[in-house]
């Protein structure tokens, strides 16, 4: 199953928008609700979806969805 589609599904559930489309260049600025608290919810949901665990520093400097997907794919091996 495609990592991008799974990520998009997680975004749709966390941000309560089942039309939401994400792209590699999508950033927090593109999704109004994406604040620091929602960021934690998003990370928790992504961890649950992919069965991975982020290190605390790994996710602080991410610039966009593409980089987030990169981390997820690395974690999944």
């Amino acid at each position: 199953m495609d990592v991008h589609l799974r990520l998009q599904q997680v975004f749709r559930e966390v941000f309560d928008d089942d039309e939401l489309e994400i792209h590699d260049h999508t950033t927090a600025k593109d999704i109004p609700e994406w604040d620091s608290l929602m960021h934690v919810s998003l990370l928790v949901a992504i961890e649950g979806e992919f069965g991975i665990r982020f290190a605390s520093a790994e996710v602080s400097g991410l610039k966009n969805v593409g980089e987030l997907r990169g981390v997820v794919e690395t974690k999944m091996g």
Partner: peptide, 14 residues
């Protein structure tokens, strides 16, 4: 989760 405390001062996991 100590990470959630560090990220957003969440003392209780979801």
């Amino acid at each position: 989760d100590p990470r959630q405390w560090a990220w957003a001062k969440q003392a209780v996991t979801p």
